[in-house]
């Protein structure tokens, strides 16, 4: 029963986010600020992780493909793996950690210190000011960060590969793109907008509904990460299914 109530409330919350996000006036400045906090500040994390993931993936691809004498397919294999799934999902999960925890804790703290009430008392729609801006910033940032992850991943792959075979940069990227279609890149990248929506909405919901003091803030933060990660993975299954429906392989 309690679970049903939470799911129902969360769904209404998400619906409200969508409705409010398209209705003017827009909190442009605050959205920009959130884009900085959530987007720009995640760049080092995503770039470094992407690079590392690229190196590791490259080593695995090499190990598998070398068995069949198919070393020539390493860049393409790595690129497909990154672009189609690894990039979007890894970026999504990393950011649900960083952004989800951040939003959950920040809004939770604002809730218990009455800052949200203070916003309302200042005649500011706290939902639009705090939640919608974060969700929009996240929806914008996720595909951008995913693209960054894809790139640094491929760059990591290139570094790993060139250290073994000395493949030139251009040749590597040209080969990497021989197997990727628009239908690989576009839906996979754009689906992270849904990830962004999930992360920011879930974290905001839990943050805003924090009740019992400092302890509640910590809980909101942890729950944000857990709930948004699980929802994100579940949504990913659904999204991949939908993508395959529209772009059968």
């Amino acid at each position: 029963m309690h679970l049903l109530v939470v799911v129902g409330e969360a769904a209404r919350f998400a619906g409200r986010v969508i409705v409010e996000s398209v209705r003017p006036p827009y909190e442009f400045r605050e959205t920009l600020r959130q884009l900085f906090e959530l987007g720009c500040r995640s760049v080092p994390l995503i770039a470094a992780s992407g690079f590392a993931v690229g190196i590791v993936l490259s080593m695995h691809t090499r190990a598998s493909l070398a068995r069949f004498g198919a070393e020539a397919l390493i860049p393409a294999g790595l690129a497909i793996a990154l672009v189609r799934e690894t990039g979007p999902l890894t970026a999504g999960l990393l950011l649900s950690g960083r952004i989800g925890a951040g939003i959950g804790a920040e809004l939770g703290a604002m809730k218990v210190t009455e800052q949200i009430d203070a916003l309302e008392a200042t005649a500011v729609d706290s939902f639009r000011y705090l939640v919608v801006t974060r969700v929009i910033a996240c929806v914008i940032a996720l595909p951008l960060l995913t693209s960054l992850m894809n790139f640094t991943g491929m760059f990591g792959g290139y570094v790993a590969e060139t250290s073994i075979t000395g493949t030139p940069f251009q040749a590597y990227f040209r080969q990497a793109f021989t197997a990727i279609e628009f239908s690989d890149l576009i839906p996979a990248t754009l689906k992270t907008m849904v990830f962004g929506f999930i992360i920011a909405s879930v974290a905001s919901y839990l943050g805003i509904n924090t009740n019992s003091g400092t302890e509640g803030v910590g809980r909101a933060s942890t729950q944000s990460v857990v709930a948004s990660s699980i929802l994100l993975i579940a949504a990913n299954v659904l999204l991949v299914r939908i993508i395959f429906f529209f772009y059968p392989v």
Binding site: F36, V43, L144, L148, R174, T189
Partner: peptide, 27 residues
Amino acid sequence: MNRMRSALVGAFVLVGLLLFGTGLFLI
């Protein structure tokens, strides 16, 4: 929101779009 931050956000958005766009272009 000072100018520096605005510029960083701008750079972030542009670089992200550029990378995505480069991918599209290569395909």
